[in-house]
Design a protein around this nucleic acid. Structure first.
Lengths: 183, 183
DNA sequence: TAAGACATGTAAGACGTTACATGATTAC
DNA sequence: GTAATCATGTAACGTCTTACATGTCTTA
């Protein structure tokens, strides 16, 4: 499906970027729904340039540090737009290792499972706080339909997703606490 | 991390199964957090048997249809238990193609994006109804800590996750509807 | 008798991670 | 000067999907 391709084209539809810049995006806004390692990104950039969907200019920073500044071509924009307009069926449920542990949790002691769940909850709460904070520091919705609308919507979505996860973990803890000892 | 290995060991910790049975599990309870294709499953079963973590007996169904009925060995149970007890950091956010489209949605018309979002919402609502229905037909929590506890908890988690997705899509539609026309 | 379910595999290629590899620039 | 950041790649390996491949059993 080449989704990474469209993540790259999307970023470049907003502004010119180096590969390194894109890696930073994968740590910020995009982190809420996509990411890639630099070892996956750089070959894909070369491939897209070969396909004529993006172009780059080499710029020198300082004395001799070369960097490739990419921008999207008209062909790239056309490709991106046709992909964005596609309607697709629901993807399979995202895999979740912690839920897998919970599902088979009756193979270990209830107390150990509770410990693991509490630890997970603590980390999820921290993540939720971070996301909520990011959202609070975002400029409010202006009423226009632009890239800031997308920024805000996915951040709000991340908060809602993470809240649901926190609530589920709290529910798991409550359920496990009220279980009779298996002995 | 060989997660499929532990999904298999987990299933076999509950009861004996053929590979075909496991494929059906990936369409039922496990579908809410893990899945695999049969072309991934069968080689992994052979590998686990080679490692001594599972064993099989060949049984004949009807005249000549051979099937391998797998069960977990004590070594397999030990391996499963030590894995279940592991505490792990949060995994990266699950990838989500629809959120990617929403993030870059200002590259297409607001009306087309609304169409796509409404179509997505309809599918999510259907899925939520199905999950809610499955939950309603599950026997209620008995108070014991057993495999039915895991069954129920992950199903409740799936409902919560899907509800959050539905709410987010409703919020997206409302936001997009109140945007001024970009012209 | 035909369709759908039961049953198990292999092969090729795409996607993704971790490790290897190198070098310049900036801030302390 | 040294650590963090900037900057770009390749190689090996593991995971996952799609296609290829085959044959039996059950139900209508």
């Amino acid at each position: 499906m080449r989704t990474l391709k469209y993540a790259i084209l999307g970023m470049l539809s907003r502004r010119e970027l180096t590969g390194y810049d894109m890696m930073k995006e994968f740590d910020r806004g995009l982190a809420n729904f996509w990411y890639a390692s630099h070892s996956q990104l750089y070959p894909e950039l070369n491939r897209l340039a070969g396909e004529g969907l993006i172009q780059y200019e080499t710029s020198i920073k300082g004395e001799s540090l070369e960097r490739k500044v990419y921008r999207i071509t008209p062909e790239g924009m056309a490709d991106l737009r046709q992909w964005l307009e596609q309607d697709e069926p629901l993807p399979p449920t995202p895999k979740d290792v912690f839920r897998l542990r919970m599902y088979f949790g009756d193979n270990i002691s209830r107390s150990r499972l509770l410990e693991l769940t509490r630890a997970q909850l603590e980390r999820r709460r921290q993540k939720l706080t971070f996301l909520q904070n990011s959202l609070d520091h975002t400029e409010p919705h202006t009423g226009r339909f632009d890239s800031a609308t997308g920024d805000r919507l996915v951040l709000e979505g991340a908060v809602m997703r993470e809240s649901a996860m926190v609530q589920w973990l709290e529910h798991c803890i409550e359920t496990l606490e009220h279980c009779k000892s298996e002995e």
